[in-house]
Amino acid sequence: MNWDASSLWQFNVLLLIMLFILAIAAISIKDLVASAVIFGAYSFIMCLLWTAMLAVDVAFTEAAVGAGVSTVLVLGTALHIKRKSKD
């Protein structure tokens, strides 16, 4: 039942690699709507990582806030500004 840092390290490393890819993609992609959606995916991967690190309450909050509400807020802003970014 008890958790061990070394028992699930493959899973952790996989999540961390995806975290890097998504973070770099979110700030380098030119389409702002795509950037917002990738940021939502980044939040969800972060939530899985925190579940693996025993922080269930924080992961629950992040799943509701990061993947749900904040993505919608960024999308709602992207609706009212120019969609393409220059860099």
Partner: peptide
């Protein structure tokens, strides 16, 4: 169980 005011409030808002 995991949960509380912040999580429940965010789910209600969502």
């Amino acid at each position: 169980s995991p949960g509380g005011g912040f999580q429940g409030g965010v789910i209600l808002g969502a």
